[in-house]
Design a binder for these strands. Structure first.
Lengths: 167, 167
DNA sequence: AAGTTAATGAAAATTATTTTCAATAAAAAG
DNA sequence: CTTTTTATTGAAAATAATTTTCATTAACTT
């Protein structure tokens, strides 16, 4: 596990493999700056397929950039969410959970949430018919309510296989 | 605004008009008891079409049953949610919001959430095609993952009419 | 009417998240 | 490359929603 220090800054800057290019531009395009803490946080978000909480992100990013503070994690997650680059979820366990858009998009899925054990199952079945439905709904809704739709969430709640068996 | 006192208990018990019959039975069927605080809370939930927070419910129910405590509101809302009688939502404003299943069902709708002003628009368009999609998804998912689906959430996030205009 | 036990409310505790503010470091300017 | 500007940072304190504790009360049972 390599850590990022200030001296290594240029080596680890976007476009050199550690990071998909473009993040710096995205930030700067919105008037923000690309910083080491933000890089570390993005690295963590890009490497996982899990739904991390702010604390989870902090623990992981802290390994790469030890000086990182939890506050900065919260701020960065909020920023990315506002920029539309990050999906924020509530699975009912009392903390927000996050997933990069980038990842949701290349692997379009929704969630089955077990209300007993809080397990999350990603599913990507029915994507075709779902996209069909979503496309029409979005078009119709944005017209009728003059509402600009940027994102959507579909979640099913119920009892998972394991919890059904352990009853 | 009438308040409920202990002396009025029998008068106000379910089945006498203040309350749709059956709540007492539902509670007892699950091993719980029908109590005055719960009646007051249910009254509030049944009278509104808004998405109330725990605090909202407390303020309203407190008018009917002044001895009520906020803790009891939280407990009752959790209980009803676990019983599958109440939908719990997170619209991103830092507090949970609730809506009786009873009401969601008789007026099936989903939500447009404005990420700028947090306004919630209920919509019930596309319900037919949606039901079609949901029915198939639920059947397929419950078979493939052996997941018992009890509920679902669909939310669209974006910018509402007013916020678009005030840009 | 008395007994059993779930439910209650006040206060304290917990916990995720936000705010404050002086110090730091990106990007811009010279 | 140095200086300037200003966004960003992290530690600590503050906030606010929700949960827990525990002695008391009141639903339902007998």
């Amino acid at each position: 596990m390599e850590t990022i220090t200030n001296k290594q800054r240029k080596v680890n800057m976007p476009g050199r493999g550690m990071m998909s290019p473009g993040w710096g531009g995205k930030f700067r395009g919105c008037g923000y700056r690309m910083t080491l803490p933000r890089q570390a946080i993005l690295n963590v978000l890009q490497k996982t397929k899990k739904h991390l909480s702010a604390e989870d992100v902090y623990m992981e990013a802290h390994k790469i950039f030890p000086h990182l503070g939890l506050t900065t994690v919260y701020r960065t997650l909020e920023l990315l969410t506002d920029m539309g680059e990050l999906n924020k979820f509530d699975f009912g366990d009392g903390r927000a959970r996050y997933e990069l858009m980038e990842i949701s998009e290349e692997d379009h899925h929704h969630h089955l949430v077990c209300t007993k054990c809080k397990r999350i199952i990603n599913y990507s079945d029915f994507v075709d018919e779902e996209l069909e439905f979503l496309k029409r709904a979005e078009k119709g809704l944005s017209k009728k309510y003059n509402f600009e739709i940027n994102n959507h969430i579909i979640q099913f709640y119920g009892v998972c296989d394991k919890c059904k068996k352990s009853k």
